[in-house]
Design a protein around this nucleic acid. Structure first.
Length: 577
RNA sequence: CGGGGUGUGGCGCAGCCUGGCUAGCGCGUCUGGUUUGGGACCAGAAGGUCGCAGGUUCGAAUCCUGUCACCCCGACCA
């Protein structure tokens, strides 16, 4: 493609709204243009990269045995009512009514496609002989995000590859899942992304049933927990700590004192008022565990993890208790709960760290009052088997498997694989007969990749002060020819020849044939980040030479014009990997 | 949904507090010329309902009210 014949609106400055590198660079390099919050046009250059990401995804899905189809974005709201996801999605589900032949039809724009595909499968698959099968599509999804942000990283319309597996038993699901997991690893590797496959919350199937594929990036919205030494990686919801090696409290125990703390209902306010450290305080959280109240004690500077609480308690659902329940159970308004002298006897659970605390500050179960000098065992007790890992991992915690320490990092979620089980097949009647003529719900898995995020996270993690640094696999063009002086007949003769011959050799070539000064073109070349740059200049031509430079390197090299096409095509070929 | 911020030619901004000449600057665009190895220079030109609506005033980009949009932090996120 010749630059003058396509549409690459590069910019020297980034627009006011853009803050993070990927957003700024994608706009400046002329990849995208915002239409509204959370909706972007892909300009020719951006579209080429997006298509390349799509192609990698398709190739690996096909290799893994998945079969492509295409479902519509539109679907009847009734399908979403059957699975209860109208309310589960709430405001996120974009839905509306249209008039058809005098009747109102209620439609939804698909935020994902479990309903539509399960409905499809329920109509055509009824025998164990038809499985396993994995179906996938690459299609636009719609989610009314409460707050779209970070350019193309979080949008209300986005391109997703979603795959769904259908199996007759859990072992077979495991194989389908592993095939997708492996395909994902290949996809992200080919895309040049440095990713982590992290354990995620597993849901109904339990066990090792969900992984998120995360690209570590400062501006990522998610937090992953990673241990370099052991390779352990999990998301914050899921991550566990190893044995914490806590020493029991060795200080001199003080007496319990009740002190007034007017209006101070937060850890921060109380610690300021009483001049104590948050790590000497106890957070007493009242949860509803399957509708029964329990108290959970967490060190003041830590954060409770509801999933861990749920697992420790053995409940199927856990949520923070509403204010009226807290009043009733503790006898105090929210913010003054403590383990000593609650109104009602309820089970008390505590995080491991509480064991090592002494002379603690806790709520006094009375408005505007706290206790100081509280000690475990003497003033309140927690049964041994009620101590557990109940909090979020903190940076520097010991890793599980007894080796190394955990660090927290921000990351961008680019993919998710998940063992669904029978939730949708049961709700939508997708059943099959086994070889014993017994009917069962089909066992499903779902596998998503945010295609736009492949591009955005690549740019986010692969750039320098001058612009984007594309890997060959995602670059909008593989090679850029920069004729320095388009008015020179000799230069253009060579440049045009190279252009034609390289294209004939199967290289994706962009030629900057604009009548601009060299410096101007070099800046744009760095900005759009084409991997290999070939400069055709009068100076080099005098020696029969061309200048070539990789975007990743700072120095250029001269190669003879003679045989340059074969050499360049070979270099590109090799870098495609 | 809570908190904060911003809307002024295509892009980046100044002017607003303290109302008053023809709304200004840089980049970009167009014309002519000189240039040509890291975002050139000179001369000239085009391009604006100052987000929108209402109000105050002799007079509003500027003050007031409402509204819309966008951005950031937080909450939410199958």
């Amino acid at each position: 493609m010749r630059w003058t014949q396509t549409f690459i609106p590069t910019m020297k400055e980034s627009p006011e709204g853009a803050e993070i590198p990927s957003h700024k660079l994608m706009i400046r390099a002329g990849l995208i243009q915002q239409v509204m919050a959370g909706a972007y046009t892909y300009l020719p250059l951006g579209l080429r990269s997006l298509k390349k990401a799509e192609r990698i995804v398709r190739e690996e899905m096909d290799k893994a045995g998945a079969v492509e189809l295409l479902m519509p974005a539109l679907s009847p709201i009734s399908l979403w009512e059957k699975t209860g996801r109208v309310s589960a999605f709430g405001n996120v589900l974009i839905n509306f009514k249209v008039n058809r032949a005098g009747k109102q039809v209620h439609l939804a724009l698909g935020p994902t496609h479990e309903e539509v595909i399960t409905d499809l499968v329920s109509r055509h698959i009824s025998s164990y002989r038809q499985m396993p099968i994995t179906l996938y599509q690459v299609q636009n999804k719609f989610r009314n995000e409460e707050r779209p942000r970070f350019g193309v990283l979080r949008t209300s319309e986005f391109l997703m590859k979603d795959a769904y597996s259908f199996d007759t038993n859990v072992e077979s699901l495991g194989r389908s899942y592993d095939a997708m997991y492996d395909a994902y690893c290949k996809i992200f590797t080919r895309a040049g992304l440095k990713y982590l496959a992290v354990e995620a919350e597993s849901g109904p199937i339990g066990g090792d049933a969900s992984h998120e594929f995360m690209v570590v990036a400062e501006n990522g919205e998610d937090v992953v927990v990673h241990c370099e030494e052991s390779g352990y990686a999990a998301n914050l919801e899921r991550a566990e700590t190893g044995p914490r090696g806590l020493e029991p409290f060795a200080g001199e125990p003080q007496g319990v004192k009740k002190v007034p703390t007017p209006e101070a209902s937060s850890i921060e306010a109380v610690s300021k008022m009483l001049k104590c450290k948050p790590s000497d305080m106890i957070k007493t959280l009242i949860y509803m565990a399957d509708d029964k109240p329990i108290a959970v004690l967490i060190r003041g500077d830590h954060e409770a993890n509801e999933n861990k609480v749920r697992r420790a308690v053995g409940a199927s659902a856990v949520e923070l208790a509403p204010a009226d329940v807290i009043n009733k159970v503790t006898g105090a308004p929210v913010g003054f709960a403590g383990p000593i002298g609650m109104q009602e006897e309820i089970p008390i659970w505590a995080d491991f760290d509480v064991r090592a605390m002494g002379n603690m500050v806790t709520g006094a179960n009375e408005g505007d009052m706290h206790y100081t000098g509280v000690n475990l065992g003497r003033d309140f007790s927690v049964p041994d088997d009620h101590f557990a890992d109940l909090r979020n991992v903190e940076d520097g915690d010991p890793a599980p498997e007894g080796k190394g320490t955990l660090s927290l990092r921000h990351a961008i979620e680019v993919g998710h694989v998940f063992k669904l089980g029978t939730k949708y097949s049961e709700a939508l009647g997708a059943k099959f007969l086994d070889d014993q003529e017994k009917q069962h719900p089909i066992i499903m898995g779902c596998y998503g990749i945010g295609v736009n995020r492949i591009i955005a996270s690549l740019v986010e993690t692969s750039h320098d002060d001058f612009g984007i640094i594309w890997p060959m696999s995602l670059a909008p063009y593989e090679l850029l020819i920069t004729p320095l002086n388009v008015k020179s007949e000799e230069v253009m003769k060579v440049a045009n020849g190279l252009y034609d011959d390289l294209r004939a050799a199967g290289v994706e070539v962009l030629m900057d044939d604009r009548d601009q000064r060299p410096g101007f073109k070099f800046k744009d070349a760095d900005l759009i980040g084409i991997p290999l740059r070939v400069v055709v200049g009068e100076r080099g031509l005098k020696e029969g030479q061309l200048e070539i430079k990789w975007r990743t390197e700072s120095d250029a090299n001269m190669i003879p014009l003679e045989g340059a096409v074969a050499k360049l095509a070979g270099m590109v070929e090799e870098a495609r990997a």
